[in-house]
Design a protein around this nucleic acid. Structure first.
Lengths: 225, 225, 225, 225
DNA sequence: CATGAATGAGCTTTCATTCAT
DNA sequence: GATGAATGAAAGCTCATTCAT
């Protein structure tokens, strides 16, 4: 599969220092890590450059050796996160031939991918910086998942396994949003639920929503009569 | 119906001025309105007191006659928005006896309620105030919708119209999240879709997801055979 | 005489505050005065915003109520100085009919005008800010004096009182520069000289340089023989 | 001829490295050259150590192997420039016996000497170093030219070729300033003029100003009558 | 000698908040 | 009530200088 995600908007950030020595690379990595944590904990706006520096154990002067601004740092953190999520979304696409099992596997991956980075990805909207760079990044990222969902649905429709009346893109946005949103509520806002239960519900709802008949182990009593 | 929403976190805001005169009431209203717009357009952190004052046509000194801080202003704006959304969620609950039509009506209301305030409500999570007051407010607000959804599902389950295996709360969170999230993508991020199509899809997905049999106008070809 | 000096380059500075109240006007004036003195004493680059504020007796926050930056402040100081010098150059142009006396009067004015503002005007070249705004301002200012000098010489040439072979503009630049430069050496660098002696020498040199015959009270001994 | 210029203020600069190896000498020279160019182009304050290092192709750490500070570097650049100008002023003092030709030759040298270094020399006044070291350096440099001019004038006066009423020092300052100032206007500020025309005018003005009779090829018409 | 990472003093600028008028 | 001048804490960022490698 070709790289759908261009990331051009982030990649063009001027990298201030190539961090040629190993010590430099370590410092740079420490700042990235510290930034990742700080953003995650306090949100884009609340993070001060100094917070990141203290956490990384360097002076604020050093920060500017590696990054030109908070935005530049966030850009790199974002790029890493997006790359990670993209990678996560690809893994194991192969999987089973059973549509329901495929959806379940996809949902589990989906949930875990968002779970790991939900806070930061949500922050993309907050970190919107005039030019909307991060907003666009988020759109690109979502697009990856939306396309995957839409493609899957289309295939099922062609196979006669899903309701052909559903608009693939719209449906993918809605059901994908269900998973993304649940990941947020579950992990960021502390809604209690076991992963198994969550994946089970998400999958059942998703499968039945698109009309995947086998997805309905439940038969109305009177129907069974 | 009792007020589910306690809003304790908002109610304890010190109201600096009762705005006893009519001139005072007008100024106060202008500031609230200006704050609402400014927050919506630029986000909590990006809004400066001065922006609000300029928009309201008053000097920045006057601001403090009515509100003790930016947070206090946001608190009142938030309270108003939450009240509005709460009201919106109540309207027309009566409605039809047909479960599918009830879900459709609820989704339309749900979508419109979030559509009107999506940006601001999302900001609740972003408005870091140390004590997480607004985060809690958002939880309370979502709880209203979650409960409504869970109650509805439970009723359908009791009537044998929905899959009894589904956890009502978890399901309501997931499907409610689908609508809330779509409202955001649709209105804040500019995904193109007609309201009718959106409501139709949301309703179909929701109804079928919970196993509402009548919700499936689609029957697999081979099944029909 | 029409205003030769456009000053467009300075006038387009955005004035941050109209200083509507009398207190505001006083503060603004104090900052301008303090800036004038500070620039004069320490040079453009060496002056810190805080130096100006301390001298004016206001906090540095207040500075930004009236001026957007050090450059903006310097712009206004410069504008005032240029206006003053321009005014000084105009006064008493009328004067005597005797060419020598006219040159003497002009030189005295010239010397005094530069004496009062020499340091600051020289600073225009130092304060060059990328766009060369102040550099241009200095050129405009010098042009006023150059034109005056060139016009005067041309008139004398037409009357047959000055060497017609001299290029008026070039000559005016050179002789004007002599006065300007001497003002600098005399007042900024502390070269000792009485004003009378200085004016007398400058005038004698100037007059004789352009060939004004009457300017030569000195006759070579052997010529007199 | 004895060294008039003491340069005590510069000589006391601590030379951090004698640059004993040939590699060291090359690096040192590169930094000096780079500093010269950088100061000339951007001015003392605007030049950062890093600019100089980049231009010289060395790391900024290396800078401190050879120079203790920006001021120290400027000191050496200044010393070199002053030495150069001093040398230039000496060359060809021999020359013709004709006073007018001697003045012309001196002016040409003078103009060229200033032309080559005008920017840097002007910077001496701008390079505020607390102790005014460079200001003094400039005074010393000017003194060389002033003395030469004053001596020349005195000789002419003794020979009865120049107005004995003129104060030699004051006159030398004024006429020397005329040349120095013109060099600045001509080369730094871009006033258009051919060197020949410039030298011709400067010489004619200078010669006639001091009353050198032969300098006046121009005779008033009516006098000729 | 050369390197470049690290440091931190020092400056600019913003903006919520106070208060005299 | 309304005004807007004044304040200063809190950031952001720069750059001369040091020092371990």
């Amino acid at each position: 599969m070709t790289r759908v995600l261009s990331c051009a908007s982030v990649a063009d950030v001027i990298v201030k220092s190539p961090a040629s020595t190993s010590r430099g690379r370590r410092t740079r990595a420490a700042l990235l890590q510290a930034g990742h944590e700080a953003f995650e904990e306090h949100g884009y706006d609340a993070v001060r450059i100094d917070d990141v520096c203290v956490r990384a154990g360097v002076s604020h002067g050093t920060f500017y050796t590696y990054f030109g601004s908070k935005e530049a740092l966030f850009g790199e953190v974002a790029e890493a996160v997006v790359g990670e999520m993209f990678a996560a979304s690809v893994v194991g696409t192969a999987a089973s031939a059973d549509p329901y099992a495929r959806i379940e596997a996809a949902n589990r991956l989906y949930l875990r991918a968002w779970a790991a980075n939900s806070r930061l990805v949500r922050m993309f909207e907050q970190a919107a910086t005039g030019d909307g760079r991060f907003g666009r990044l988020l759109l690109e990222l979502r697009e990856v998942f939306v396309r995957r969902g839409a493609d899957g649905l289309r295939r099922l429709q062609e196979e006669g396994l899903a309701d052909p009346a559903l608009d693939p893109r719209l449906t993918a946005i809605m059901l994908g949003g269900m998973v993304e949103h649940f990941a947020h509520v579950w992990l960021d806002l502390g809604e209690q639920a076991a992963e198994e239960t969550a994946v089970d519900h998400l999958t059942r709802l998703w499968a039945r929503a698109i009309g995947l008949t086998d997805a309905s182990p439940w038969v109305r009593p009177e129907e069974g009569a």
